[in-house]
Simulated scan of single mutants.
Amino acid sequence: MLLSVADQTAFDRVSECHPQWTGMCRVSDVIAGDAKLLLHAGPPFSAVDTIPAPVMNSLCVSAVWEGWADSYDQARQMINQGLIRVEPAQDHHIVVPLAGVVSPSMQLMVIADANNPAAKKYSVLNEGMVHCTRLGKLDPELQAHLRWLNGELSDWIANRLEQPIDLLPVIAAALGDGDDCHGRTIAGSALIADQLFKATSGDIPEEIETFLNGAMAFALNIWMASSSLMMSAAEGVEGASLITKAAGNGYDFGVQVAAKPGLWITMAAPEVKGAIDEAHTGRRAVGAIGDSAVVDFIGLGGQVLNTATASYEGLKAYLPEDALNRPEKALAATLTGFGSRPAMTSARQVVENQGGPMVLLGMIEDRGESGRIGGGVVDVPVSFFRNVLDEAGL
């Protein structure tokens, strides 16, 4: 039950949002100017020397891909000298997973509110399961993959979005098939791929068909942008404690609250607790990283483990005892679009009920050598939400 009129007003705005995938655009169409600017997940870095190795690797990959540097070493020097700027993607209405980076020549999926078409959020295409900037490695195959992803694949997809894809029904169907829409996105990715294939007249290029059929996390970036769009509908409601942004950069973890748009409230990035794959025994992961935390904070991911049984079974050794009761503790009210599940993290309710949201995250190796080394969960502490209320003056 909502604890304030302001939170109710903010939640009502969220419930009116109807996200649709309406098309593709270039990053430079969204962010004006000629500056050398790269965007990362999470809140801003306080200094360049706090950027974790995986994020720095992805920044360097993107700088070379843009043609700003001839080598990764040169790119790193330019970043360290401030010749290439880095800023949070969410501050520009874009979301990016894990250690991924957004650069001006990349293509973005446009997610718009059918009831307010001017309201839009964006995400890069999910890169698949092999060559991914989100893994934070200096992968020699990434340059070619980025060219294909932002060329042939994005052009093919753009031509199949003449009719927008309504996303809430797909989310509800994916949840019904056992997805949590963060750690597990298999059903949702297949549903999205099927809609793209059905919009095709003529043969589907074999490389594209193979990629989409094998990209089990393809829907994640779409769910991220949809979550970000819906959460942002609550922004600007005076006195409201609903969380409208949430993310980690591997060094810090931060949120924004409805009453104070633009104000990042941060803590040290918490540990992701989970099993490290046997092949990576002895390696360590960076702290919580990625804009995908928005999926969990809106009420998916770690908040739907009661229906996402495969996710629950894989993580239960690392979950708190009250894991299946967290939704009723942390989330504001029932959202019809999520199959009548609870949604929207309320800082007030987290503090009142002594239970915060759980975030399902990949574990990215801290030296930038091994990429994803496992998967786990972050139990965002109640003490952080007390600080959120204090810093937001609520």
Rank of each mutant, 00 (worst) to 15 (best):
Q77W: 08
G67P: 05
A63W: 03
D70S: 11
E66H: 03
A69G: 04
H92A: 12
E87H: 08
W65C: 07
R76T: 09
Q77N: 12
P88V: 07
G82F: 03
Q81R: 15
I94Q: 10
A75C: 11
V64I: 02
V95N: 11
I79Q: 04
E66C: 00
V86S: 12
R76A: 15
Q81F: 10
D70M: 01
D91R: 04
W65Q: 04
S71D: 06
R76S: 13
Q90Y: 10
R76Q: 12
N80G: 14
D91A: 12
R76F: 07
G82D: 02
Q81Y: 07
E87T: 05
A63D: 01
A63V: 04
E87L: 05
D91C: 06
I79R: 01
R85H: 06
E87C: 02
H92L: 08
E66I: 05
A69E: 06
D70E: 09
A63P: 02
D70A: 12
W65E: 06
H93L: 15
Q74E: 15
A89C: 00
P88D: 04
Q74P: 09
R76V: 06
H92N: 14
D91S: 14
V64L: 06
S62I: 06
Q90I: 08
S71R: 00
V86M: 07
V95A: 14
A75L: 10
I84R: 05
Q90F: 09
D73F: 05
Q74D: 13
V64T: 02
D91H: 08
E87M: 02
R76I: 08
I79W: 07
A89H: 01
I84N: 03
R76N: 10
R85S: 12
P88H: 04
